[in-house]
C-alpha cells in the first residue's frame, strides 16, 4: 500500500503507477457527473459535438451534491459524497474511451467491462467512503462553475477545485485488478463458514 498525492490533470503515467489498495489524495479541478451526464455526453459525442467540459486526463466524480448559492450569486458545496457507481456500469466503458477520463471517484465499484476499459485506456477507479459528504465538502475549496444545471442540482456537471481530497482507495487499477472482485471472491469462500455457524 503506497500513498500518493496527485494533482489534476492526470497523466497516463500518474495512473498506471497505481495499484489496488493504494491511497490517493487529490488536488485540482474535478468534475461531477452521474446518470444524466453520461447519457447526454455520449449522445452529443455521437452527433459529433462536444460536452461543455473536456474530460481528457481529468477526474470524474460520481456525485450529486447539495449546493447552495449565497447572496453574491456564488455557489458553495454543502455536501458532496459519492453515489453508487454501478448505476453507470453500462455507459462507463464508452465514456472512458470517448473522453479519455483518467480517474473516476465513486462508491461500490464497477463491473468487468469498466475494469477492462480502464486497463486498455489507462484509467483508475478511486473509492471514496460512501456518505462521507461533509469530509468531501470540506476538501472542495472553490466552485469554478456549473454546466447542465437544467438536469437538476444532483445531475449537473459541477466544476470543483479540490484540496487534499481523500483518502481515496484505488478500487480498480489500470492493470485489470479490482479490489471489489477480490472481496467478492473472499465472501464466496467465507459464506461456507457463515452457513456452518448458522446451521444452514
Amino acid at each position: 500500500m503506497v500513498e500518493y498525492r496527485l494533482k489534476t490533470p492526470l497523466s497516463e503515467e500518474d495512473v498506471r503507477k497505481l495499484n489496488v489498495g493504494d491511497i490517493v489524495y487529490l488536488d485540482g479541478i474535478i468534475y461531477t457527473g452521474r446518470d444524466e451526464v453520461h447519457i447526454h455526453a455520449i449522445e452529443l459525442a455521437k452527433e459529433g459535438k462536444s460536452p461543455p467540459v473536456d474530460f481528457k486526463d481529468m477526474v470524474l466524480f460520481h456525485c450529486g451534491p447539495v449546493m447552495k448559492k449565497d447572496e453574491n450569486g456564488e455557489w458553495h458545496v454543502i455536501a458532496a459524497g459519492p453515489t453508487t457507481s454501478s448505476r453507470m456500469n453500462s455507459l462507463e466503458p464508452e465514456f472512458i474511451e470517448r473522453f479519455g477520463v483518467r480517474a473516476i471517484i465513486g462508491k461500490g465499484g464497477m463491473s468487468k467491462p469498466t475494469v477492462d476499459a480502464m486497463k486498455k485506456h489507462g484509467a483508475v477507479y478511486l473509492a471514496m467512503t460512501g456518505g462521507a459528504a461533509a469530509l468531501a465538502a470540506n476538501a472542495f475549496k472553490k466552485v469554478h462553475g456549473v454546466e447542465w444545471l437544467e438536469f437538476g442540482m444532483p445531475e449537473a456537471i459541477w466544476i470543483l477545485e479540490a484540496e487534499n481530497l481523500g483518502p481515496l482507495v484505488v478500487g480498480i487499477d489500470a492493470h485489470g485488478n479490482s479490489l471489489y472482485e477480490d472481496v467478492e471472491e473472499k465472501v464466496r469462500k467465507n459464506e461456507k463458514k457463515v452457513r456452518e455457524i448458522l446451521g444452514i
Binding site: 462508491k107 461500490g108 465499484g109 473509492a127 467512503t129 460512501g130 482507495v169 478500487g171 479490489l179 471489489y180 477480490d182 472481496v183 473472499k186 465472501v187 467465507n190 459464506e191 463458514k193 457463515v194 455457524i197
Partner: peptide
Amino acid sequence: NEIGIGPMGLG
C-alpha cells in the same frame, strides 16, 4: 460479520 464484505464493501 464473518462474511468479510466490510466497511464500504472493501473487505
